[in-house]
Write a protein that binds this DNA or RNA. Structure first.
Lengths: 199, 199, 199, 199
DNA sequence: CGCTAAACGAGACGGTACGTCGAGTCTTAGA
DNA sequence: TCTAAGACTCGACGTACCGTCTCGTTTAGCG
């Protein structure tokens, strides 16, 4: 959040509380799922006052968002294989894989849900989570455009919408598995193997 | 829902209460948005006992779902122009248009949100709303497949995911307008103008 | 109540329903106690519509009151032994005995409770239940007065209050047993063995 | 109740809320009577959350009980005139007088009613209200016994039952006035002017 | 070393909504 | 007109969380 190193007088925020809250959140998400993660339960599980949570995060969703931000498997990595098709495929494979383990899927659904119910969290979610991932993906597209390696059948502005839309749609709507096969199908749609212009 | 014409003994459910509840829901959605639509407020606005709502619907989301089901602009119409590309384009144009007016968008977001928080409503939402729309869309795809009119670059099973995913992604994540241009971009990605095999 | 034999047109009230309701009330009182005896439960147990109950009695307390009125051990019997002391003693012995078995005690407490909460039932309770019992008791007192057999130490108007007050007080307040010993103690207070005037 | 001065950590209970609730209860009892005193109404009238009431008292009857406990005219005073007869008379005079003003009578009826419907409150009512008053009365009896000043015609264990029974009986059953004349009649029955053994 | 100031755990605060229960009334079809 | 059934409006219940406030206590830096 915004707890940089500006240090006024007074007792500094406890790093251990911070850590215990995040750990408690992890445990509760695993045990009870996002829906039953309440600030009350979180504070109790962490052995922390409710205010200590509010002091750091505006909503429970922000806690969870930080949790995700800290996870290495959610780091935004931009593959650079030299080929648009391979880049897309690798990106989607790893993105779909990361989102497919059930507790993570539950957590992502929770974040998206909260983003609808709390406009202010919605902004942060878009800015801090969705945005960066989109930007990373866009690097692939822009690089391909510069190389004139982009297929012509799909408007370059729609590529990211299709990629992430397919991901979230399965997550939220159909709940079918986000497996490698699905990632591949989407990748193929965005980057046809032999290229759409054919010969 | 399930209040068909099985008539046992006893006073039948009041059609007028039913109607008043749906009308009240419409008014409240328009006025306050989905998030502030509570059972309490709904009962008060409709001049109805809370129990009367619970008797008919399990959650407020089910009320809203019935509201949507009744709306003509949400009827699932399957265009049949003889061309896969034109069918897709028409379907997406009308689907995106229907979802783009702000109160409707808010309502759809509310339904998807509730589907995440209430697993049992999730099932109904998928079965009663998402399913039929997907099935309608699938008719277009299947018809094209029978005609061998399907582009080869995209796996036929992924087409619907891309179409609806793009819709919901903008609705929930980016909140950018679901305009005709966007519908067209998605349609082009699914059905390239000159056909994907090129020459 | 008021279901005399005035017969207009239409279906006559079912005696079997009437009986089933009273029997159901008996069972429920025995099983769950007065507090959990609701009109809903009563109708369900009797296999009867709620309206059928309301048509005959104004409140559940009125049902119970009729139940009591029908019971032989609650018939108001006025002993006439020729002696004030013996009459009093016999009356109290049998009244206390009748009120002392636990289900009956619970029922009486329920009636008194309801009489406080429902002023109109309160009137009926006083008029139909308490009144007749007081009147019966008063016969004893009046007879003794006519015989000049009344002890002088207690105002004749207070005798009934003491007798019934002692009964209800144990029933409602202390919940100590309404045994023969207690009945006797009260009887002695009202009719001292050797007579109050002593010599 | 049980909120003595044991001070754990955390924000202490607000004395002002406490006071406002009791004041609100007083107003509502006066205005609407015990039966219409609900937790909802009480919270609203006091400008307090419902939980704040539940935190302190288990039932509305417990609120009212505390109200009574605080009132000076309900303090248990034991007269000590040196004469059993005079003590009894004074005690009953003041007890009957306190119970005879209509709002208080209503409140007492409410407490006794609730004690029947809620067994756990019943225990508290007996222990915290009825018990102390009985004990105070018993002091008079015991003192007289020590002085051999007790009339022989009434078993000493029954004296309190008669005294309080007469009070509650009028309150609950006959609703006739608890006036000085009545108090006197009961006092005379318990303590005959010239003594029961006569000469 | 003590002072100031903020964070800490705890838990009470005023609220809002929940889902349930029971009351007393109304409305069916059928006897 | 009664019956069983089951709808209706209403209002209270007790619970769960919310986000804030208020305790006594702890922990830092500064004077």
């Amino acid at each position: 959040m915004d707890h940089e190193n500006r240090r006024g007088p007074g007792r500094p925020r406890s790093e251990s509380s911070h850590r215990r809250i995040l750990e408690a959140a992890t445990r509760l998400l695993e045990r009870d799922g996002y829906t039953r993660l309440t600030i009350d339960a979180l504070a109790a599980e962490a052995g922390v006052g409710r205010q200590t949570i509010y002091r750091r995060w505006r909503t429970k969703a922000d806690v969870v968002l930080e949790l995700v931000a800290d996870r290495p498997d959610f780091a935004v990595a931009v593959p650079d294989t030299g080929s648009y098709g391979r880049d897309i495929r690798e990106f989607l494979q790893s993105a779909f894989a990361a989102a497919s383990d059930p507790p993570t899927a539950d957590l992502l659904r929770g974040l998206m849900t909260e983003a609808q119910e709390r406009p202010d969290f919605g902004h942060r979610f878009r800015h801090d989570f969705l945005g960066p991932r989109r930007a990373a993906f866009q690097v692939i597209v822009d690089r391909a455009a510069a190389r004139q390696d982009l297929p012509s059948h799909v408007a370059s502005e729609a590529i990211a919408d299709i990629a992430f839309g397919s991901l979230w749609y399965r997550l939220l709507a159909t709940r079918e598995p986000l497996d490698a096969q699905y990632a591949d199908a989407i990748a193929r749609a965005l980057a046809p193997p032999e290229g759409p212009t054919g010969a």
